[in-house]
Design a protein around this nucleic acid. Structure first.
Length: 832
RNA sequence: GCCGGGGUGGCGAAACUGGUUAGACGCGAGGGACUUAAAAUCCCUUGGCCGAAAGGCCAUCUGGGUUCGACUCCCAGCCCCGGCACCA
């Protein structure tokens, strides 16, 4: 335990981080320093960081880097007089935890608390200003009760529905994966090749919100990279739906050059396609349906049936991802023809796997002249390729050796009355023209898909639905929540595609809440992203058992003022959180529809140029560093590595410099003198430093803030100088966000009774920072040749005269400069 | 391929809206002081080339351009990192 010695005492003891940090950890805990007064706190500021998944390996530097970045901003806001709320929790449900439990052969209910305890210890030792009284654990029934409640809100509003869908099935994890969890055909977490399966799944209708999710982005103060990732993911496309009449061979027989030899099986009368290029409709020479398209049976003629059936079977067996990555074109003619509504020409209808059922209408008009994919397909199958758009140099019949996809300076050709139109004009005009003929309508499509929340696994909140033969899917009444996850020993998933819960009749057999007849519980659990999609709403209201979040408290603390996290969650967690917030807003539960006013993505900490991973064996565990150097040094070092939003390469070299800096701050405070007056030059530097640090922290430019403090300490101690107490005192709160323990201790040493974080941010005096002289660079012909010192209020003439008079400059000066450029306070340039 | 971000000393990096001899701050390296010695600490030097020095020249991925002045702006290209990608 350190004994504060008075400033100026002859033999200051050296800085001992472990003693200082232990002392303040204990004192903060005992005094509740980090607890937030949720009800009465003034100027509330909610500083959120992405909560971790409590892995068995413990917290790694990547986590700590992010947390520290948030903690610094949070502590800074507190110093500026805000009541700051910096909560933490554990995202402990999900495949991650479950797989790990399976591997160790330990039940997750045993494993998770162990990991949480370890994380808690690590976070505490890192000195984060976390309010532990409001920690959240997604696996706690008092939390997932409300996760289930959120599901019910969506269900009520018709935003949760069940459908049988082709899904990505991971044969290794034995579960369904969201599209986002598949990377290049492989399972994002285990690397197994993903297969296609058809299962009944619960979906959230996030696509209903696509337009709002996109439009609101413009109003958010978020990292550009994150916003642009979301824009791409939502993928808005403006275009048109165009209807193509399908020829009825009986009616149209003999009417055209169609040789219909077979009977049609049914009366599919039209095919609707989606296109972003309605301007090219005159060049549509065939149609393609997705193999899964519901009209395929209707349009397939008898003689084509075997080929179509074989092709569809083949497609169905293929995994969803290799289908999307293979560029080779395959397909089969259905035997039917349709009429191009623009040209009146009769064109064939094909099926091909390059058309996807889940996008647009699952059908396209193929314009091989102006689309890469259609061109490749037409080449493969000998279908006609026509030019309807020409570049400035091309004639209307210039042959197409490759698709012409430029639209910038292009004009329409071979498109009757639309010839000569620009692409943009033609899009509008042709859509309007077809619209009149009831053959088209302008429409917006989104790439975003509905969110599949079903997981056929054990370790998640059961979806609160009861299936009844008479009543259908009945929501569990709110007063019956939570639907507890039963503690079953055989939680291992199997290949059946149903959840382990489905093996427990005693659990799933329940009476229907509506009619009382025997019914069965839904046995799927929900996606982890549902747990994390609303946790920020819960934090301020932790402890409330009668509501997910308290109205007044939520009103006061939300939306989140500052959210810091990794960009790997740019399109999943952040999109889902926004969506759920919008839904809860629409349902009248929230007064805002965007949860995070400001979001900043932190950079990645890499090691030896590579992302840290267990397989590479380059993971850095913070514990050893904290033990060796102290948490304050380690925190400050992590932030000194590089710009927070860019991350950096972790290496041991360099940490000693930060430690030396803290040693020198320690020595400066403990050795400060109180006699005499502070040095005005030092005081000027001090105020420049206060400004710099105060400007840099809100911009998360922590590395330069630290550099500024180091510079100041160099000035303080230059030439074995002994600093004055008043020069050193304001440095302590500046340092406090970065190195909170040592700052507290030094503050106490300086004789303060209250903690440093309740003492306010030092005041910055612009007059003191400026001083009364200024240095002006002197250039001749744009080349800097020296500088002159002049009074701060000197005008151009005075500066120019001083510059001319400076001996070092005279020899470069032309006899009579043609021009003199003066930039106030910066430079004077003589141009000869 | 498309959309972001980025290329500056031996290394991590600075440089406000084009303006103080580019490289702050830190690491590393070299030299010195203290010490019997080492560690720690403190002081000095440290982009490259030429030069005894004074000083000069060259340097922010490459090549052009705008400007009195460019790491910063414009055009063309190369490389690295991240996201998206048969989405019609």
């Amino acid at each position: 335990m350190t004994q504060p010695d008075r400033p100026g005492s002859a033999e200051p003891h050296p800085y001992d981080p472990s003693a200082v940090e232990r002392k303040w950890r204990e004192r903060w805990a005992a005094q509740g320093t980090n607890r937030t007064d949720i009800e009465r706190g003034e100027r509330p500021f909610y500083a959120l960081m992405m909560f971790p998944y409590p892995s068995a390996e413990g917290l790694h530097v990547g986590n700590l880097f992010a947390f520290t970045g948030n903690d610094i901003f949070a502590r800074f806001q507190r110093l500026r007089g805000h009541s700051v709320f910096e909560p933490i929790g554990f995202d402990a449900f999900g495949i991650h935890s479950e797989n790990h439990a399976l591997k160790l052969g330990v039940h997750p209910t045993e494993l998770i608390p162990r990991n949480v305890a370890n994380f808690t210890r690590q976070i505490t030792s890192a000195g984060l200003m976390v309010d532990w009284s409001r920690a959240v654990d997604t696996t706690d029934p008092s939390y997932y009760k409300w996760t289930q409640w959120v599901f019910l809100q969506l269900f009520r509003r018709g935003l949760a529905y069940r459908k049988k869908a082709a899904v990505n099935w991971c044969p290794n994890d034995k579960t369904v994966l969201a599209n986002e969890q598949v990377e290049n055909g492989l399972c994002e977490r285990c690397g197994a090749t993903v297969e296609q399966r058809f299962l009944e799944q619960w979906f959230f209708r996030i696509t209903d919100y696509a337009g709002r999710l996109l439009a609101n982005l413009d109003t958010l103060d978020w990292s550009q990279t994150t916003k642009s990732a979301q824009r791409t993911w939502i993928g808005r496309s403006d275009g048109a739906e165009i209807r193509f009449r399908v020829l009825d061979p009986l009616q149209d027989a003999g009417s055209a050059a169609v040789h219909v030899t077979s009977e049609v099986t049914s009366g599919a009368s039209e095919i609707v396609v989606f296109t972003t290029r309605p301007d090219t409709v005159f060049g549509a020479t065939y149609l393609v349906l997705a193999p899964e398209h519901p009209l395929v049976d209707d349009v397939t003629t008898g003689d084509q049936e075997p080929a179509v059936a074989a092709y569809r079977k083949r497609t169905a067996a293929q995994d969803l991802v290799s289908r999307k990555t293979t560029r080779d074109k395959t397909g089969v003619f259905t035997g039917s023809y349709a009429v191009n509504p623009a040209t009146g020409e009769i064109i064939p209808v094909w099926i091909a796997d390059y058309v996807l059922m889940e996008y647009g209408t699952g059908a396209i008009m193929a314009v091989p002249g102006h689309d890469e994919r259609d061109f490749a397909f037409a080449r493969e199958f000998g279908l006609p390729i026509e030019r309807v758009v020409a570049g400035p140099g091309d004639g209307a019949h210039a042959p197409l050796a490759e698709p012409f996809t430029d639209t910038a300076n292009a004009r329409l050709v071979n498109s009757e009355r639309f010839d000569g139109y620009t692409v943009d004009d033609a899009k509008v005009a042709i859509t309007a023209w077809l619209e009149e003929k009831h053959a088209a309508r302008a429409i917006v499509n989104y790439r975003l898909h509905d969110w599949c929340i079903s997981r056929q696994r054990y370790w998640g909140p059961p979806i609160p639905i009861i299936h009844c033969d008479s009543c259908g899917a009945v929501p569990v009444p709110e007063q019956d929540l939570p639907v507890l996850l039963p503690n079953i020993p055989d939680f291992r998933p199997d290949d059946s595609g149903v959840s382990p819960l489905a093996r427990h009749e005693e659990w799933y057999r329940v009476p229907c809440p509506a009619c009382g007849k025997p019914a069965r519980r839904e046995t799927d659990v929900s996606d982890t992203f549902l747990d994390s999609g609303w946790y920020f709403l819960r934090y301020p209201s932790v402890g409330r058992d009668d509501a997910p979040f308290d109205a007044a408290v939520t009103q006061k603390w939300l939306p989140v003022d500052s959210y810091i996290g990794g960009n790997e969650h740019a399109v999943l967690h952040l999109m889902y959180s926004r969506f759920l917030t919008m839904v809860l807003h629409d349902a009248g539960h929230l007064g805002f529809e965007e949860p995070f006013t400001k979001f900043r993505a932190h950079g990645l900490i890499i090691r030896d140029g590579a992302k840290m991973s267990k397989s590479k064996g380059n993971v850095v565990v913070p514990d050893d560093y904290i033990a060796r150097w102290g948490a304050d040094t380690f925190r400050t070092y992590l932030m000194f590595l590089g710009p927070f939003e860019e991350g950096g390469d972790f290496r041991d070299a360099g940490i000693s410099g930060v430690r030396r800096f803290l040693d020198r701050v320690w020595a400066s405070v403990h050795g400060a003198r109180t006699d005499g007056e502070p040095d005005p030059d030092v005081v000027r530097k001090l105020h420049q430093t206060i400004r710099k640090v105060g400007d840099d922290i809100p911009r998360l430019q922590y590395n330069t803030a630290i550099a500024a403090m180091m510079e100041y300490v160099n000035v303080l101690r230059r030439g074995e100088r002994v600093p004055h107490r008043s020069e050193v005192e304001p440095l302590v709160p500046l340092l406090a966000p970065f190195a909170p323990h040592v700052a507290e201790d030094l503050w106490e040493t300086l004789g303060h009774a209250t903690g440093v974080f309740d003492s306010g941010w030092p005041e910055f005096d612009p007059a003191l920072a400026a001083g009364d002289a200024m240095t002006i660079a002197v250039q001749v012909n744009g080349k800097t040749r020296g500088s002159v010192e002049v009074a701060r209020d000197a005008g151009e003439e005075v500066v120019a005269a001083a510059a001319r008079g400076a001996p070092a400059i005279a020899k470069f000066l032309p006899a009579s400069p043609k021009k003199v450029i003066y930039v106030h306070g910066r430079l004077v340039n003589f141009v000869g």
